[in-house]
Design a protein around this nucleic acid. Structure first.
Length: 197
DNA sequence: CCCTGATTCGC
DNA sequence: GCGAATCAGG
């Protein structure tokens, strides 16, 4: 595969969106993340400055007299693109349980086992909770046997019920849960004080 | 171990 | 210019 115009454009676009090199590579196909990174550098957009917040206005005086393009100036666009930062898509956060109706029993894990602490009605980070409720809809709903070292092992539902499943989403490196569940599983113990934003 | 981007350097 | 190998974090 070669860097056709289209491919380069997609690369720029994705990189601008903050996609990781590996994701871009996967999307493009036929290239490795190294290739993508290498290209990114050669294109001179290693810095994700393209669109991200006006964080730090890199002092780029560029005293060099840029070679005046005698023929044309086909590069006015793009630059000011991607004003939308993929901010956290804060979804509606309800305290509703994501557990589908099944039995009058709530989603309570029969304590005792090394199962994670269910947030039940506790007061965990609203954000984290919302996150969980949001992603639980996308859960792969794996069965016990389908779990691997790379699948979130967060249990959902009543084990004594047919609709009991495990999250199954990609785990956060190391941890046994996906990012969202890690959020509610490992709370520093002293996370919420008197939040009042 | 999984991942990330950054660099190097033979091609 | 290209990208695998390698490096340097997280």
């Amino acid at each position: 595969m070669s860097w056709t115009d289209e491919r380069v454009e997609l690369l720029k676009k994705m990189w601008g969106e903050g996609q990781s090199a590996s994701q871009i590579a996967k999307e493009l196909g036929g290239v490795t993340r190294n290739a993508v990174i290498g290209k990114v550098h050669r294109l001179g957009l290693s810095n994700r400055a393209g669109a991200a917040g006006p964080a730090k206005a890199e002092p780029k005086p560029a005293p060099k007299a840029e070679a005046p393009k005698p023929k044309a100036a086909p590069k006015p666009a793009a630059a000011a693109a991607a004003p939308a930062k993929p901010a956290q898509p804060e979804v509606v956060m309800e305290t509703k349980s994501a557990t589908p109706p099944a039995s009058p029993r709530r989603q309570i894990i029969p304590a005792g086992q090394p199962l994670p602490p269910q947030p039940s009605a506790n007061e965990i980070s609203p954000e984290a909770l919302a996150k969980v409720n949001a992603i639980e809809k996308k859960a792969k709903k794996l069965s016990l046997m389908e779990l691997t070292e790379k699948t979130c092992k967060w249990p959902v539902g009543d084990p004594a019920t047919p609709n009991f499943w495990f999250c199954g989403l990609p785990v956060q490196q190391g941890k046994p849960y996906c990012e969202a569940h890690v959020g509610v599983a490992f709370q520093p113990m002293s996370s919420r004080r008197d939040r009042r934003r």
